[in-house]
Design a binder for these strands. Structure first.
Lengths: 155, 155
DNA sequence: CGCTTGCTTGGAGTGCACTCCAAGTCTCTA
DNA sequence: TAGAGACTTGGAGTGCACTCCAAGCAAGCG
């Protein structure tokens, strides 16, 4: 049994610009075609992951050039924005795939989509509450160590 | 590639009682010896997981009966309480093992422990912020579906 | 005493979400 | 037009955190 230090290297998405409404990835104006590496850059996901998302049905159909290379659209970027946000909140990939299927099926799945997101919102709220309660424990513990440190410094 | 529905069956710990200070698992008074299955019941962790935690060094030394069976103490329960809280906040097991090592090494590791917990507190705060920002996106999306539903109901 | 139920171990297996590989094709710049 | 670097695929590999298995010992009950 070996437990090695976790590699916490997480690709950071390009910095977001503030605006009203949901914050999206910044985009060069007048463009609607992006290579996979440009999308990787802007979303913080790896090209591998983008291809994998497509394979498992988590992406709507992505355009291709005549030679088969992917060309992502602004709409794809919007979708990835939602997906990465849901992923950050710990929604399982399988649930996101389910949601993607519903989107593909059309407007008649609105009620089901609403249910899915509402249930997830409840999850997120609960997670926030959990985190906040742990924050208290952390504060409590840190105080103990800080007090000990101050006491020793006061010698 | 198959993506199956996630098994979300998560063992719930026995309900916590409200009190001032950190909330701990409820304990029968005057007892300081628990079998592994009792501890599993009270913490919500499986017996497998408890043995695994011990193997990887995430538990302080656990007492044994003369025949080798584990007998957990109230002190062990306190420790597991902290561990499960840290786990809920997504601290990697490797980091918790590191913290456990520091605890075993004695009081001279206080500063390092304080650093570790403080860094983690920062993580947790950031995660809360992330979740809250996603909550807004969720609200926004849900509103759209709810509006559509109300519009169709109003026919 | 036999039976059931619970505990022990090392090691193997699982599920998730990537992550990488090999070998070939395409695109861009000089 | 040559060469560097980016892109393609199916499939294999990785890391984490469990989760289970087999085979055997132990405790309590009728």
């Amino acid at each position: 049994m070996t437990v090695t230090a976790t590699d916490r290297t997480v690709r950071e998405p390009a910095r977001l610009t503030a605006c009203k409404g949901p914050v999206l990835y910044p985009r060069p104006t007048g463009r609607d075609q992006y290579t996979i590496s440009e999308v990787a850059e802007v979303t913080g996901l790896s090209a591998h992951t983008l291809r994998w998302y497509e394979r498992i049905g988590l992406m709507p159909h992505v355009d291709r050039t005549h030679t088969g290379q992917r060309r992502f659209s602004n709409r794809d970027l919007d979708w990835l924005d939602l997906v990465t946000k849901l992923r950050l909140t710990g929604m399982p990939v399988a649930d996101m795939v389910r949601y993607a299927e519903l989107v593909r099926e059309g407007a008649h799945t609105f009620p089901e989509r609403e249910r899915l997101l509402t249930a997830h919102r409840e999850d997120v709220r609960q997670r926030i509450a959990e985190l906040q309660s742990t924050l208290q424990v952390l504060d409590y513990k840190i105080d103990i160590y800080a007090d000990a440190r101050r006491a020793s410094e006061r010698v």
